[in-house]
């Protein structure tokens, strides 16, 4: 029984069957990649997992509890954090403040009115945020506005913010899309480090096969809203169905 169990999920947008009978099981403390050509339904599936979309039928269980019908912030509080394709960070806030917010969210829950005490006096939170930035090599930038950082550092910060919440499942949506090779490799190294140091399950959606084969322990191939195959990276590499799904896309393009 995996930490994340997706059963018979269907989602239709008008005439388009975005997801049809998706079954997926992500085992605890593994890195599970979901790959597939454009329009395969990867993003739709991700949006179902985080509560942004409600599927038409099916069930999604996280650690034995259903996530369906819960709001995104409630699902996050259950222990699922999401990294976006374009880094979603608090651009107007400093890097340190960015890092403090998830720590507050972890400590205080979805809402707490602490309007009089000063942020400076929350020494434990500040310390934890500083340590986290140190481990991400972002400590030097801590008083900069996060919007001024490079794409690669924004990505590091976003991943760090998710980790600061100590999630049990980390979802990554094409974390290296649009990145230079060097930044991509940095991100791969960071994710490897996270996988080695923490008890965490990682589900990653990715186009870049270099990233996928560097990280994944299991791979699910999605095409036209249905999982084609699920296997280890070695088996997936030479699988005829996978080649077909990808080559078919290339031929059509």
């Amino acid at each position: 029984m995996g930490i994340l169990e997706v059963k018979n999920v269907n989602k239709r947008f008008g005439g388009l069957q975005a997801l049809s009978d998706v079954n997926l099981s992500v085992a605890e403390n593994t890195v599970h990649a979901i790959i597939g050509p454009n329009g395969a339904g990867k993003s739709t599936l991700l949006n179902v997992l985080v509560g942004k979309l409600l599927p038409d039928t099916g069930s999604v269980m996280f650690d034995g509890q259903s996530v369906l019908g819960r709001k995104p912030y409630e699902i996050n509080q259950m222990g699922i954090s999401r990294v976006f394709q374009t880094p979603e960070i608090f651009g107007d806030l400093t890097v340190l403040e960015n890092m403090m917010i998830p720590i507050f969210a972890k400590r205080d829950g979805a809402f707490r009115m602490h309007a009089i005490e000063s942020v400076r006096n929350e020494r434990a939170v500040v310390q934890q945020a500083e340590d986290m930035l140190e481990s991400l090599n972002l400590a030097d930038a801590r008083h900069d506005h996060s919007a001024s950082m490079s794409r690669g550092n924004k990505r590091r910060l976003e991943i760090g913010m998710c980790l600061a919440q100590e999630p049990r499942l980390l979802l990554l949506d094409e974390p290296t899309a649009g990145m230079a090779r060097a930044d991509t490799n940095n991100t791969i190294d960071l994710l490897k480090q996270i996988k080695d140091e923490r008890d965490i399950t990682i589900a990653i959606i990715e186009h870049d096969m270099h990233v996928v084969f560097s990280l994944a322990e299991r791979i699910t191939v999605l095409a036209q809203g249905t999982p084609l195959v699920e296997d280890t990276p070695d088996k997936i590499k030479g699988h005829p169905k996978v080649r077909e799904a990808y080559l078919g896309e290339t031929a059509a393009a």
Binding site: K71, E74, N76, S81, F84, F90, D92, E97, I101, A110
Partner: peptide, 17 residues
């Protein structure tokens, strides 16, 4: 409050209402 103004999406996906 400044986080709401800056990025409501990240706010939500950080478990904050």
């Amino acid at each position: 409050l400044r986080a709401i103004k800056s990025n409501n999406t990240r706010m939500t996906y950080t478990g904050l209402n």
